[in-house]
């Protein structure tokens, strides 16, 4: 059956979706088109019939009185606060706070207290000739000893140990370093060790505890220029083998010697059988904990790389 071309406007007309002009035109059309008029009347009539039928059913099946009666008879006559809502707000609040803290922590520059994480032993090449695992490191390149141990070191390195307190010491020479109970341990060492700043620390060198107490100010009995890494061919045959960081003498750990390491008085007096870090209150060389990562911790205090 061919429909009137205006037939599609019937539904729009019913829904008042025609513009004023369209509506007027369609009303004119209705006067002349019986088909559209019949269709419109049927649509309107069906709507009315449906509405009347459901209205009638609704009138017969209303339950408003039952609803209110039940509400009045509820054991608790007041609406109970939804416990889920409380929990929802709790979790939403917790999530919001966590998000804020995360964002703030991400965008707030955190003062670097040391080179690396707590409990880490970080080593840093102090000159361009420093070698790790027989490969040259870039100057000031920092790495976590835990990631490279056993680290075969040759040259001049700065160690930053954070174990409660921060200790920074320099190693010049050759040694194999690893971490033992959170502290660096050196074996096959032919090197000098000197505390540069921070807390007193006792490290194991060739199996013996070596207490690094204070910054070394006495020149080593040989050229340990950091620009020229300490040579392994130390004149140990005729020089005393020392292992000290005291101001009285410097130390050399001569692993080639069969004799036990000679430790100076202060080192020898170290009673710590196990490596330990001790605080040095008021130390003038205390590492500034706010130094940014990667920065040489001696930046504020010119480092005398030659040990002087």
């Amino acid at each position: 059956m061919n429909r009137c071309p205006e037939n599609d406007k019937i539904l729009l007309f019913c829904e008042h979706e025609l513009s004023d002009v369209e509506r007027s035109q369609f009303e004119l059309h209705l006067k002349t088109c019986a088909e559209c008029r019949r269709e419109l009347e049927q649509t309107v009539a069906d709507d009315a019939l449906l509405r009347a039928g459901i209205d009638e059913a609704f009138a017969r099946h209303r339950v408003s009185n039952r609803i209110m009666a039940q509400i009045r008879n509820e054991k608790t006559a007041t609406p109970v606060a939804d416990s889920h809502k409380g929990w929802r707000y709790f979790w939403l609040t917790a999530f919001a706070l966590l998000t804020i803290i995360t964002v703030v922590s991400l965008y707030t520059p955190t003062p670097a207290k040391y080179h690396g994480r707590v409990g880490a032993v970080m080593l840093q090449a102090l000159n361009e000739k420093s070698m790790l695992q027989s490969e040259k490191l870039a100057v000031d390149q920092v790495c976590d000893l835990a990631t490279v141990e056993p680290a075969k070191l040759d040259g001049c390195f700065l160690f930053t140990v954070t174990s409660g307190q921060t200790s920074v010491f320099k190693m010049s020479g050759q040694a194999i370093a690893r971490i033992n109970q959170g502290l660096p341990e050196f074996t096959d060492a032919k090197a000098t060790f000197e505390l540069v700043s921070g807390a007193i620390i006792t490290i194991l060198v060739n199996g013996s505890p070596l207490k690094l107490e204070r910054k070394t100010i006495i020149p080593a009995p040989f050229n340990t220029s950091d620009l020229a890494p300490d040579r392994p061919d130390l004149p140990s045959a005729h020089l005393p083998s020392v292992a000290s960081t005291s101001c009285a003498s410097d130390a050399i750990i001569d692993c080639m010697s069969e004799t036990p390491c000679i430790i100076d008085n202060s080192a020898a007096n170290a009673s710590a059988a196990t490596p330990a870090v001790e605080a040095v209150p008021g130390s003038a060389t205390w590492v500034d904990p706010t130094q940014p990562p990667g920065k040489n911790p001696f930046a504020d205090e010119p480092l005398k790389l030659d040990g002087n």
Partner: peptide
């Protein structure tokens, strides 16, 4: 089932009342 319609209508409003705070 109109009886079921009645029951669910009633239950809907009672439940809404109980949880109105939410």
């Amino acid at each position: 089932d109109l009886q079921e319609v009645e029951d669910i209508v009633q239950e809907t409003f009672v439940k809404a009342f109980r949880h109105l705070a939410s």
